[in-house]
Each structure stands twice: as C-alpha cells, then as structure tokens.
C-alpha cells in the first residue's frame, strides 16, 4: 500500500513535466510544419472594422520571410495596418527558443477540438509576454492564438485553413486588437453635422478593432527580397 502511495505521488508530481514535454513536442511538430515555408508572398482582401475608421475593402499583399519578417502592404491604396499584424506570422511564437509551455487542456475552435497551449517566454528581450495557442493536433495547425505584447497590448488571431493547410498557411485571418480612443480637439475639423454623430457611442475608448484578411493566393518559397520589409 505504501509502495502504491509513493508511485501515485511520483506520477502526480511528474505529470506536469510529462504534459509539458508533450506540448513541447506538439509545438515542435507544428513548427516543423510551418518551417516548410521559407517565404511567401500572399495576395488578399483586407477588411478593417474599427469603430472610428471607415475604410474600403483593400487589396493587400503579405510578404513573409523566415524567421520573423512579415509585412502587410496595401500597394494600391491607403490602409491603416495594425502594428500587431506581424503576429500573423506564427513563427513569432513558435520560433521562441527559451520558453515555458503549459498545457491548457482542450477547447473547440470552429468546431474543431484544439489543444490549448500557453507559452511564457523566459527571456526579457522578447516582445511577447505570453501567448496562448489553440492547435488542431491532427492537422498540426494553429487555429487561434492570443498574444500579449509589451508595447501593443493583446492580439487575438483566428485562422481558418483550406487549400494552403499543408503549408500551415491560412485562407483567412481575423486579427482582433485593442484600440485607443480617437478624438480630435473641437474646432479643428469643423465638421458638417449630418446627424450621424448622434448614433455613435459616446465613448470609443478601449474598444476592440478587427482586421480580416482573406487570402486568395500564396506564392511560396519563391524568394522575397529584403527590401519589401523596409
């Protein structure tokens, strides 16, 4: 009986370490999949849904180069690209070298059972303070991630995959982020009162903004010049 008690205690104490090992393996498997992509140039449509920005659907190009270069460009127009959009690149999290990974159980994302993995970078140099990935273990795809950064607050990414799933590249990304209040001093713009202001909420502080990119095509591993990231 005493032996049994000791064994149970050992198992209980060793379980987190075992789980951590499991999620690290899972993360490495996912990374290995994502690492098949050295670079890509993607074309997509970007919708901006921010309370104080009225923007048309923009045609954007997304450039990526391993390990951590990512740039979203609206080459044929003006778009306000959220600064956290670089986190669309999963390598920002998967490429971390020194981190603590914790299994957060499972959760369904878009009907798919996903493993929840919480990642805590151990180095103070990283811009990410914590991250939670929701991983489809069967396809080894990150379906959702919540990334907290030191400077730009928290970003939530929701991804759906179709034809580029084997590369770990989503067909659609929804990036939700925190926005700051936008209000110019009175009398600067001398607006025309068309009655629309009366419908708006008084306080747009701390509202969430959302950007959605629907990719139409990817050009993978054909090389991307460094100049596009400047």
């Amino acid at each position: 009986m005493k032996k049994m008690r000791v064994l149970f205690l050992l198992l209980f104490l060793a379980a987190p370490a075992l789980y951590a090992q499991e999620v690290r393996t899972l993360l490495q498997q996912v990374k290995a999949k994502y690492d098949k992509v050295n670079d890509y140039t993607a074309t997509g449509k970007m919708k901006t849904n921010v309370i104080f920005i009225k923007a048309p659907v923009a045609t954007v190009k997304v450039y990526y180069k391993r390990p951590d270069k990512l740039k979203i460009k609206n080459e044929s127009g003006v778009s306000f690209i959220p600064k956290g959009s670089a986190n669309v690149n999963m390598n920002n999290v998967l490429g971390l070298s020194d981190y603590e990974a914790v299994d957060g159980g499972t959760e369904k994302i878009a009907g798919i059972n996903c493993r929840v993995v919480k990642i805590f970078p151990l180095s103070d140099d990283e811009s990410i303070t914590r991250s939670t990935l929701y991983i489809d273990e069967t396809k080894l795809l990150v379906m959702k991630s919540v990334i907290s950064t030191k400077e730009n607050g928290t970003y939530e990414l929701l991804m759906s995959y179709k034809q580029y799933a084997e590369w770990g590249l989503p067909d659609k990304v929804e990036l939700t982020f925190n926005t700051r209040d936008y209000k110019l001093p009175k009398g600067v713009t001398i607006d025309y009162d068309n009655g629309s202001g009366k419908d708006k909420p008084e306080d747009a502080k701390n509202k969430k903004g959302k950007v959605e990119i629907a990719y139409s095509s990817y050009i993978i591993n054909k090389g991307v010049p460094d100049s596009v990231f400047n």
Partner: peptide
C-alpha cells in the same frame, strides 16, 4: 491616392 478625411471622432478612407 486614396483619400483620408479626418473628422473629429472618426476617419473616412475613400478609394
């Protein structure tokens, strides 16, 4: 280029 018009509480982008 696209036109951005700044209003007191929002901004409008037009192609």
């Amino acid at each position: 280029e696209d036109l951005v018009v700044f209003r007191e509480t929002d901004m409008h982008i037009m192609k």
